Amino acid sequence: MSEVRLGKTEIVSDKNGFGALPIQRISFDEAEKLILKAYDAGITYFDTARFYTDSEQKLGRALKGKRHDVTIATKTMCTTTEEFWAQLDQSLTDLDTDYIDLYQFHNPDFCPKPGDGSGLYEAMLEAKKQGKILHIGITNHRLAIADEAVESGLYETMQFPFSYLASPEDLALAEKCRDHDMGFIAMKALSGGLITRADVAYAFCDKYDYVLPIWGVQKMSELDDFLACAKNPPVYDGAMEAFVAKEREQLAGDFCRGCGYCLPCPQGINIPDCARMSLLIRRAPIELYMNDDYQAQMQQVKECIHCDQCNGRCPYGLDTPALLEKNLKDYEQQLAAHH
């Protein structure tokens, strides 16, 4: 099994990190079975966040008694020091632990630094001094902030979207982290579900010995795919390169990555699904998206009031209302043709 070292943290993990965002959608018992299967198969790196509702609680319950055999990374979206300490204490409680291996600022819209007036980085240092956290990291979706964090030398890890759809700038960021001995953690390695071949996704990330991909899984079958890749690593060969070239062509330009930072929508629109429906119905069996529930979701797009809250929150600068309208039109055409 391939391993990766997360820079100066000296944390070593196998090439399969467990992304715990999707386990919000399953029961505690289902989550426990999934987490324990991953652990028994050799996965030791578990990624979650305070923002992921009950994900921390599910990890805490499943990993009870195994704490010193695993690495737990979580995140805070705090904007004040009061929120920092409240969220950290709640994470420690929910994870049923007295320390967090890697604590990260969760997609902040600026790079926290000492003396910036927010007090956030100073709080991180104090938490580390108290032994509540062992390492300080940051996650982001914005290249400018990510670059600033690397150049600052203040962070031990960077978590950033990275997959075979990565741009040259994304690749350069990963290399910069390597050069700064900064751990690089690949989020959205499946591009929010748009990437459907686990073998190609794994093989691409495996080319970079300094990149740790975290896979968001909520089904045993999904976990099995990555465990199989770890056991018999697929080779990124010419056939895969040709496949990726076609994928890049199809997904070129503006598309929703499904990160969810646009939520909540005041009109209750499920933006991450609705804004990329055109792609979803072309990359998976169309029947999955033609049921009554999805039809109702797509009809909600008509309730958009163009408040532009989603635009302001989108880290990729997408014109979300326009994207929603485009996807609704395409969906209705596909629905008519399907029936």
Rank of each mutant, 00 (worst) to 15 (best):
C274P: 09
L102H: 01
E222M: 06
A49Y: 03
L223R: 00
K37T: 10
D308C: 08
L324Y: 05
Q295N: 14
W85S: 09
F184W: 09
I195R: 07
K15N: 02
R5M: 13
K188R: 10
D94Q: 15
E10P: 09
A127D: 05
I43T: 07
G119Y: 01
L120W: 03
E83G: 11
Q250H: 15
P264F: 11
A242S: 15
K188F: 02
V211A: 05
E82H: 11
I281M: 12
C259R: 04
A198R: 01
G131A: 11
D319P: 00
A127L: 08
Q334E: 15
A62V: 06
M240P: 00
I136K: 10
Q309Y: 06
Q267Y: 11
F226Q: 02
L92T: 04
G258C: 02
C205Y: 01
I138E: 01
A201L: 06
M182G: 07
Y316C: 11
Y39W: 07
I43K: 00
C229D: 04
N232T: 12
E303T: 15
Y202D: 01
L323I: 09
D29S: 12
C259Q: 04
L263C: 10
F204R: 01
S13Y: 06
E83D: 12
C177V: 10
V211T: 05
L251Y: 03
Y52P: 01
D89R: 12
A203F: 04
V12F: 11
G65D: 07
Y294N: 15
A73K: 01
E325G: 15
R257L: 08
G317N: 13
Y103Q: 05
L95S: 05
A38L: 06
F160T: 01
C310L: 06
A230G: 10
L190P: 00
G137Y: 01
T9R: 13
G7L: 08
